[in-house]
Design a protein around this nucleic acid. Structure first.
Length: 337
DNA sequence: TTCCAAGAACCCGTTACGTCA
DNA sequence: AATGACGTAACGGGTTCTTGG
């Protein structure tokens, strides 16, 4: 009997969930796993550029009909009725990175809120982290030569220098909270939906496009990840609470069933001497019939004892309860709780 | 090859500020 | 106008991982 519960992001998927659709007779009882469909990424994975593939792998895993699955994709598509910000162009896309000659305005510019004089600091800084040279994005700089990499490293240094300069600039000032405009927030939100982490180049491009400091973009993504995690935890808690209620109810039902069986055994002392009784199921209607095997070898199905245990919410119990055997796992479909 | 220090990126908890009822 | 609740930008400290010596 395997029980796996996870709150939040599971870095390691439950192995047994991979094979639960083929529950054998040994997999008795409840096989309950709650794995988030959120990509189980790690920083090292991100840095190795395998973020995307891991995400897809995990999606395949959790979509293979696990016994108990809550599909909690944090990046669900925009719900109907909600309009996604239109024509949002991500700055790290190749077509956005190529600035038009003579153009003094980057795409997406024009936000007049929290406008900071960071243009000088960020100018020309198209960089890629040495740790994230293989970006999680399939973009133009995924494959680079040494010269590009060198240029990237130089740009990193420039960016760090400018970052320090801007920090020094503000050291004398008290922390002033600047609220992002709706456009900025929407843009960041869309970016976050694409990828919840940024490499330095993406961060810089976003910052430049939104007229924010790279540090602001970085902080926004950190806070956004924290909010997502918090929300996810709340959802998981709620789900587990319902699971607990369901299991409690199931347990109560089973206890009663056991009590009834014991009472039956007491009231019918010769119960155990009766011929073996098995339960069979009609495959079409899933009704359970009691079949008695006579000593002469013939079998009879007693219609009077044909019972169905189906309820409005649960499937019928299809297996006779032998010693040590529990009910087959209750399959809780997605969203059924 | 192993060890270690430095740096980067991230997470987490907290603080401070803006907004709204 | 004052106030408390709430959301969130920003910060500081700690952890993990990578990299170069």
């Amino acid at each position: 009997m395997e029980l796996a519960l996870s709150l939040g992001y599971t870095s390691k998927p439950f192995k047994f969930l991979d094979k639960t659709p083929r529950l054998s007779s040994k997999d008795l009882g409840f096989c309950m796993g709650l794995g988030s469909a959120f990509p189980a990424t790690t920083r090292s994975q991100d840095k190795l550029g395998s973020h995307e593939s891991n995400y897809q792998d995990d999606e395949r895993r959790v979509s293979s009909d696990p016994p108990l699955q809550l599909d909690l994709l944090p990046f669900s598509p925009v719900p109907r009725g909600h309009q996604a910000p239109s024509k949002i162009r991500f700055p790290w896309l190749a077509d956005n990175l190529v600035s038009e000659p003579g153009s003094t305005e980057a795409p997406g510019r024009g936000f007049d809120v929290n406008r900071l004089s960071m243009d000088d600091a960020d100018e020309g800084a198209a960089i890629s982290s040495p740790n994230s040279a293989a970006s999680s994005f399939q973009m133009d700089f995924a494959i680079r030569g040494g010269r590009d990499r060198k240029r990237d490293l130089e740009a990193i240094d420039a960016e760090r220098a400018s970052s320090r300069a801007s920090d020094d600039e503000e050291n004398g000032l008290a922390r002033k909270k600047l609220r992002l405009s709706k456009e900025q927030s929407a843009f960041l939100e869309e970016s976050f939906k694409e990828h919840n982490t940024l490499n330095p180049k993406q961060k810089l491009a976003l910052a430049k496009q939104l007229n924010l400091r790279p540090r602001q973009v970085e902080v926004w993504f950190q806070n956004r990840r924290a909010r997502t995690k918090l929300k996810q935890t709340e959802v998981d808690c709620e789900y587990l609470k319902r699971c607990c209620e369901t299991l409690t109810e199931e347990n109560r039902r089973l206890q009663k069933e056991l009590q009834d069986l014991r009472a039956l055994k007491t009231s019918q002392p010769f119960y155990m001497q009766l011929p073996a009784t098995t339960l069979t199921m009609c495959p079409s209607c899933e009704r359970v019939a009691t079949t008695t095997t006579s000593s002469s070898g013939g079998t009879t199905t007693n219609p009077s004892t044909t019972t169905t245990t189906s309820t409005t919410n649960s499937k019928p119990r299809l297996f006779p309860l032998s010693q040590g055997q529990l009910h087959p796992p209750t399959k809780l479909l997605h969203g059924s709780l």
